[in-house]
Every structure is written in C-alpha cells, then in structure tokens.
Design a protein around this nucleic acid. Structure first.
Lengths: 221, 221
DNA sequence: TGGCAATATTTGTGATCACAAAAACTGGAT
DNA sequence: ATCCAGTTTTTGTGATCACAAATATTGCCA
C-alpha cells in the first residue's frame, strides 16, 4: 500500500497548496518565489515545485521575469480593467449556463453561503470571508457540469486575488458589502431570469472592484 | 556565446512546436503522446518535453488520463457547445476592446489576410488556410496590448482545433466560406461600431462551427 | 561617502536515474 | 477462437546533479 490511483501526485498537492495560498492572499504582488525555497519550505524535492510553478505561470497566476525568475505579478490599472472585463463576460455566461441546473437545494445552499459571508464580515474574519465568497461564486458556476469555463474563470481569479487581498481590507467589505448583489443573483436564479442574472453578476463584479478609490492603490504611480 | 538572454529555452521551443502542431491539426483526438516518444522525435531529453506537456495540459490543450497518461482530448457535443460559448464571449470582448487601437493600416492588413484566406481555399491549401484564418483573428484581438484575453482565447482555440481539423475539411470551407463574415467584421471595425462588431464576431464563430451537420461527427455516438 | 569591478552565491534549466504503477504482450487452458 | 493469469515493456513521477547565467555581496579606490 505505497501509492494508489487516488493518491494525488506531489506535484498536484503542491499546486493546490500554492493555488489556495494565492487565492487567500498569502502572496504579495512583486515578491519572487524560488524552486529551492519552496522545496525546503514544503519539504519536497525540486521536481514537484517546478511542475506546480510551471502550471501556475501558464495560468498567469505567477509570471516569469525575462531571466526565468518566478514572481507574483504586480497589478496595473489597465490590466485590472481587462481582468474585470474578462470576469464579467466569463462569469455572466457561466451563470447563465447554470440556470437549467438550478434547483431549490442549490438556491438554499447559496443563501446559506450568503448568510455566512455576512457573519464573516461581522466577526472580522477575512480568511473565512474569502473562502465563503469564493465558494458562493464557484458553486454557482459549477452547477452546470463542464470543464470549459471553470479553468478560465479560475485563471482570472488567480490573477486578481493577490492584488485584491492587498488592497481590499475589511473596512472596504463593511462599507461596500456585496451581500445585496448576491441577493439579486439568487433572486434572478429563482426566477430563471437570464437577463437579470447577467446584470446581477456584472454588478457584483464591478461593485467588488469599483469600491477601490485612487488612494487605495498601492504606492508609486 | 553559448546562450544569451534572447535564446528561448528548449522547453519553450518544444511548447511552441507542439502548440502549432495542435492548432494545425497534426494531432488527432484520442491519440496519446508520451514524454519519451516526443523526446526522441524532437531530439531533446525528457525534461523540456515534460514541462511543455505540463503547460499544454494546464491549458486543456491536452488532457491527463486518471493514470497520468497524456492524450489529445476527444470532443463531445456538450463540450463543443461550451467552447463555442466561451469563444463568443471572449472574442467579442477582445474585439470590442481592440476598436480604439484600430487604424487604417490594421484594416488594410485584415483585408489582405481575408483575401489570402480566399486564395487558400481556391488552391485547396488547408495548412495555409488555418494559418491565415488564425492570424486574422489573433491580429485583431492583439491590437489592444494586453496579456489577459489572449491566453484565455488561445486556450479555447487549442481545445477546439484538433476536433475542427478532423471534421472541417476543405469541402466545408468551400461551401461555408467565412469570408462574408470577415467582411462584416472589417466593416464594423471601420465604423467603430461595437455592437455590430459583436454580432459579426458571434456570427463568424457560430458559422464556422454551425456548418457541422450530424453526419460530419466522427464515429460512434 | 559613493561608485564600480571582482567575487561569491543563488537560481532556473536540462540531463539522467531508480522506482512503481499501468499497459501491452504472451501462452496455455477451456 | 476466447478468456485469463503471468510476464515483459512502457510510462510518468520524483530525486539528484552539473552548468551557466543572473543576482547579491564584498572590498577597493577616488
């Protein structure tokens, strides 16, 4: 019983580990990550790290410098605008595709997640908030079984997460609570209203990013 | 003068090599590719192949079997529908984002490519047709400098290419020429008409795939 | 103190190997 | 011929190493 079919490879474990770290804001934009550094930190050899980093750079969650070094990408205003555009068009479509698969159970689950998000904000638990918020969106998009949209959406989330975690603090969440938009999403789902759902998704995404004012932008132009 | 900054790594060369092969329809859906096989074929060691394959599986251009084998993915009707949806929403947005960067020179270039596409069809040159067709779309989407939409769009193209090359033959191209749709695209670009451009892009994409009738689908269900 | 050349260290890439699991093949029994 | 157990071959994964380029550090001189 050394290794079985269901055992994930080391490379896969490292990948998921790093991906969660990125989504949870544990990596600050600009810092560089090294193969040997992570290998020692995670207690594995270089190979699984290399492969995990290769995957993450392919997804643009990390970027390669011209000399092959790996780092957490820095955000620019132009890039943020395009990432928002990408999120809107992909997630709108994914949500609309999900409509035929929405049942009462799913609506119940989303409502519960939405309540939990509120509670996270009240008790100032940023980590839990990020998780619940992510789960709210991803369970919706995954309602329609497909391996097409989710990888694309995940790539975009990975690209915005380090920046958002850096700038969007709990104060933002308290004053710009996304809860109302999520209620609109659930409402539209209940009505099987594709158009309304599209608007609600777009509003939610814009709202989440739009609360960033100029002075929130990290230093240096 | 052994290696300089501009020299691409072996891994990068292998990746681009395989990517082009995929886009040009040189890999049939269902066949499996092996590290050692490609290593011998391309005359490099296993490492560059491993990394290139890891990138391509991350992009869903290739897929991993439950036991870690790599193969060219097979198409299903459901997946094709979603890939078409993804192409439409991504490429619509990318084209619209390109509008501010369109000048006469770009329109000239696109018109030329469109003519060349016609010539490829006339002289039955499928390889050249695929290249020109790809270049038409990608030069348009790349008019707006960005590293956000292109990787997403490329991933989707990589996923449809092996299947399309298998099913869409030259006969299809002759009877369902995409030329008219491309003219609409160029027209809308000239008018800076975002709405019209969106419709034209969607029509072009649907048209390219929609010409597939049931009997064109490869065997077995 | 500030700039710069020489040196030392860190880093990614590519190569090679052992290993275990999976797949392909073989041969015999029914 | 068909099925199945036993064997051989193929395959991906992970580990380790050499190497050269990039980066960091040092120490000297103006």
């Amino acid at each position: 019983m050394t290794k079985s079919l269901k055992d994930k490879t080391l490379q896969e474990q490292v990948y998921e580990n790093l991906k969660l770290g990125l989504l949870n804001g544990e990596f600050k934009p600009g810092v560089s990550v090294t193969i040997r550094g992570l290998a020692e930190e995670l207690g594995v050899s270089a190979m699984p790290i290399r492969e995990a980093l290769r995957r993450l750079t392919t997804e643009r969650a990390l970027v390669l410098t011209p000399t092959g070094r790996v780092r957490v990408p820095c955000m620019t205003r132009k890039k943020l605008n395009q990432l928002v555009s990408a999120r809107i068009c992909l997630e709108k479509q994914a949500a609309i595709d999900a409509i035929p698969y929405i049942d009462d159970e799913m609506i119940e689950a989303l409502s519960l997640l939405n309540d939990e998000i509120d509670q996270c904000i009240e008790r100032n638990d940023y980590q839990a908030y990020l998780q619940k918020h992510r789960r709210f969106h991803f369970t919706l998009y995954q309602a329609a079984p497909s391996d097409v949209f989710m990888p694309l959406i995940e790539s975009v989330w990975l690209q915005v997460s380090p920046f958002l975690s850096l700038t969007l603090s709990l104060e933002h969440l308290q004053s710009y609570n996304t809860n109302d938009r999520h209620v609109e999403i659930i409402q539209a789902l209940g009505d099987r209203d594709a158009t309304g759902l599209g608007f609600a998704i777009e509003a939610d995404i814009r709202h989440g990013i739009g609360s960033l004012s100029e002075k929130d932008w990290p230093g240096g132009g």
